[in-house]
Amino acid sequence: MLFWQTLYQLRLFSRRPAALFFVIIMPLIMFVVFTVLFGNELIPGTEVTTAQFYAPALAVFGAVQACYTYLAVSTATARDQGVLKRIRGTPLAPITYILARILAVTAIAIAAVLVVMVVGILFFGVAVFPEKLPMAAISLFTGCFSFAALGMLVCALSRSSETTQAVVSATLLPLAFISDVFIRPFREIPQWVTTLSDIFPLKHFSTSFSHAFRADKAGSGFNWIIGDEIYAALPNLAVMAAWGIAAAAIAAYTFKWDPKGEI
């Protein structure tokens, strides 16, 4: 049942050109444009090329577009249309329906990540390190879980799809600018900005995933101690997981299936 529901959600996604564009195509376009615009050379003061920075960063952005933006908005739209209420009136277990939605957006996220990374690897010289790939995958799944939970939380706390859309954009876009997603490092960033971005999960997602594609970060990532030359993703995973669990708990408690909030 979970399998069929997941397929059904994927089919719905495939019928929505706008969603396909914002989740899969837009991160790819941004990646190519940024890399061409800035020139694919070493970023001054670092040992990474523009493509090496932007490919994983925008792959993460695509994953978040799927798990956070698309999940929240499509669920809220289905609620507005009364589809969620109808589903709730059938024998389908509510948890199966929600899990299927989350599995579907995770699959979409993987596709978005693959598209950007494969183009980066094939055409822009992005390096792959086999020993770091397991952690890259774990980071991706943790990030997807965390943002899917946050997406469900936004949907649960807003009454309409318009509100959901507004809240999602207002939270994601500013955060993306300070979380090493849209802007490559170019000078010292003020301390308070760093502190702020450290609180939210997006930077932890981009860092833990990006560092898997960096030659100057040693190790497989299974490491708690953060250092300039070490790939240590476990602290990032912990922050993402904490956000995800908290968001999932509140969302499960407050989620409503019908627009009037009766059930």
Partner: peptide, 11 residues
């Protein structure tokens, strides 16, 4: 059958 229609338009 609910009072208001609730269908996925894309299917």
């Amino acid at each position: 059958v609910l009072q208001s229609t609730a269908l996925e338009p894309d299917l």
